[in-house]
Each structure stands twice: as structure tokens, then as C-alpha cells.
């Protein structure tokens, strides 16, 4: 318990101090997206890594958050903070409502159903041109501000996004190490046994689905205010797959794993920029190889690898 708190505090310090030595705005900008992706990956991981329920439609909730905030603030002149809260609640309500029929499905069927939700949402973003601007996107979204203080620079946005991300990380850490988190993992291991233990599996699955949608919607709202421009390509099927990849390579059922996954997969395309378009091949390879050779993800695989190497060395010495 103590070491968990310490770990989180150290992590907070790192997050806080990270932009200080970075002179360029470019890296800070990338780190903003690491923060947003961390929230999204963590939301998915709660559902997939803990409760064992797959979703290939996370981008839909992310997009609904972004477009909700974007449309309300540009077309209807809503206050950004108010619209963020409203949109998050509406998206959560929507997820709760579709959660009951969707999460009655298992495995492949669940994957397909969530994928269907994602595709339909993506089509809607493209087709409702009057509201969303369609394929050419929605621009002129205002920055967030508190009083006269506007989050109009990369550095300010970095601290804004990461405050949210850290809050989500803290809440997730609390959740997974509690009665609730244990019940989720129990559902993952054996749904029948969990139900026989009095765990209301059906309701809890819908609740955690709703929570992950809520987190994604908030991430979406932040994204639109940071970017000030959004278009449907940021919320398609590929994004859902990218989030899945983050969770899998970081480590299913590990909070910090999701952060690691988000970091790696956000940096990777930046590093591969010279080899444009290779990223899709790399994602594919990563997904296949990780699932076969490192099913526990990086956070578990790398320490295990080290453990195997270290005793070997001390044995030789």
C-alpha cells in the first residue's frame, strides 16, 4: 500500500518536471497526446484488462466527447467547461443504455458489436455535415480557460491534460485495488464463479463500460479544446485498434502498463515519421508478436526478462 502511494507520487513528480528541460514546444506537444492517449488506454484497460470485456468502439466515445464539446462551443456558444460536463454525462448515459444489450454478448460477438457502434458513430461524424463539418472537419474551437487565464500554449495545455490524466490514473489505481476491482477481475477469470459469489456481473460490466466511455468522452473534450480543430479521421476504427494495441503492449490489467503503451505508441509514429506509413505495419507486427510471445505486456514481460537474465549473470560470476 505504502509503496503504491510512493510510486504514484514519483510518477506525478516526473510528469510535473518533464517539460521543464524540454526547450522545444514540439516534444511538449507530443506529450500532451501521450496524456490524452493514456486516459483513453486506461479507460479501455479497465474494461478489457480487468473485466475481460473487449471494445473495438472506444474511438466512438472519444469522438462523441470531442464533437459534443466542439459543436456545443462553436455552434451554440456554450461554456467549454459546462459543455465538457454535459457531454460526458450524455455519453455516459448513452454507453449505459447500449451497455445492457451489448455486454450480454461475449468474445467475438462483443468485439463485432462494439466495432459496429464505432463504425456507425464514425459514419455519423462524416455525414452530419451541418453540425460537424463532415470530412473537412470542425475548426475554431476555443481553448479552455479559467477566468481570464486561457490554456493557449503547449505548456499550459500539457499541465491541463496531465492533471486530468493523473486524476484518472489515481482513481483507476484506487478502483482496481478495491472490492470493486477484485470483482471485475473475478468476472474476467470465471464469470460463472463470480456470479455464484454474489457478484452482479451483468451490472458491473455495464458500469465499467460506462466508466470507460465517460473517461474517453472527457479525453475527447480535452482533445478538441487543445487542438481547436477536429476531423472524423481522428475517431475511426484505426484509432480503436491503436488504443487496443496500447493496452496490449503495455500490459492488460496494469494501470501503468497503459501509460507505457500510450507513451510508446504515441512516440512511435513520431519516430517513424521518416518512414511514413510504416506505422500500420509495425502496429500489426507488435499486436501479433506481443500476443504470442509477451501476453503479459511490457510491464510484466520486461521485468520477467530481466529476472531471467540477472540470475544467469550472477551464476557466472
Amino acid at each position: 500500500m505504502k509503496s503504491d502511494k510512493l510510486k504514484f507520487l514519483v510518477f506525478c513528480l516526473v510528469v510535473f518536471a518533464l517539460p521543464l528541460p524540454l526547450s522545444t514546444g514540439y516534444l511538449t506537444n507530443v506529450l500532451i497526446f501521450v496524456g490524452i492517449n493514456s486516459m483513453l488506454a486506461l479507460g479501455l484497460n479497465l474494461l478489457l484488462g480487468y473485466a475481460g470485456q473487449i471494445s473495438l468502439g472506444q474511438a466512438a466515445f472519444f469522438g462523441l466527447g470531442a464533437y459534443g464539446s466542439g459543436v456545443l462551443t462553436t455552434q451554440y456558444a456554450f461554456d467549454p467547461w459546462l459543455s465538457m460536463v454535459l457531454v460526458a454525462l450524455v455519453v455516459a448515459g448513452f454507453a449505459f443504455a447500449i451497455g445492457f444489450p451489448v455486454l450480454r454478448l461475449k468474445g467475438h460477438y462483443l468485439a463485432m458489436a462494439t466495432l459496429g457502434v464505432g463504425v456507425i458513430a464514425h459514419i455519423a461524424f462524416n455525414e452530419t455535415v451541418d453540425l460537424t463539418g463532415g470530412p473537412s472537419g470542425l475548426s475554431g474551437i476555443p481553448n479552455l480557460s479559467i477566468g481570464s487565464f486561457s490554456f493557449d500554449s503547449d505548456l499550459k495545455n500539457y499541465y491541463l491534460v496531465w492533471s486530468f490524466a493523473l486524476a484518472v490514473i489515481l482513481l483507476s489505481l484506487n478502483l482496481v485495488n478495491s472490492r470493486y476491482g477484485r470483482a471485475l477481475r473475478a468476472i474476467h477469470d470465471s464469470e460463472v464463479a463470480a456470479r455464484v459469489m454474489g457478484v452482479n456481473a451483468r451490472l458491473m460490466k455495464v458500469q465499467v463500460f460506462t466508466l470507460s466511455a465517460l473517461i474517453s468522452a472527457i479525453a475527447g473534450s480535452l482533445y478538441c479544446h487543445v487542438m481547436t480543430f477536429i476531423s472524423p479521421t481522428s475517431f475511426g476504427f484505426n484509432i480503436s485498434v491503436e488504443l487496443l494495441t496500447m493496452v496490449v503492449i503495455g500490459g492488460l490489467g496494469s494501470v501503468y502498463g497503459s501509460i507505457l503503451g500510450a507513451l510508446l505508441l504515441t512516440l512511435l509514429p513520431e519516430l517513424l515519421r521518416t518512414f511514413q506509413d510504416y506505422d500500420i505495419v509495425v502496429y500489426g507486427l507488435l499486436l501479433v508478436c506481443m500476443t504470442i510471445y509477451l501476453p503479459g505486456g511490457m510491464v510484466r514481460g520486461i521485468p520477467a526478462l530481466l529476472r531471467r537474465l540477472v540470475p544467469a549473470r550472477s551464476g557466472n560470476a
Partner: peptide, 26 residues
């Protein structure tokens, strides 16, 4: 619950004997 510890398994058994929900836990 194969991936959980023995103690955690029994702790799940105490699910009905406790009541903290999503909000209280997070």
C-alpha cells in the same frame, strides 16, 4: 479465480458482506 491470489479469492467471497460501490472505491 486463477490469476488472483488465494487471499484475494476469498476476499471476492466477501463481496456480498460488503457494499462499497464504484464511487466509494475509486
Amino acid at each position: 479465480f486463477g490469476k488472483m491470489t488465494v487471499l484475494e479469492n476469498v476476499m471476492v467471497g466477501l463481496h456480498t458482506q460488503s457494499s462499497s460501490g464504484l464511487f466509494a472505491c475509486s
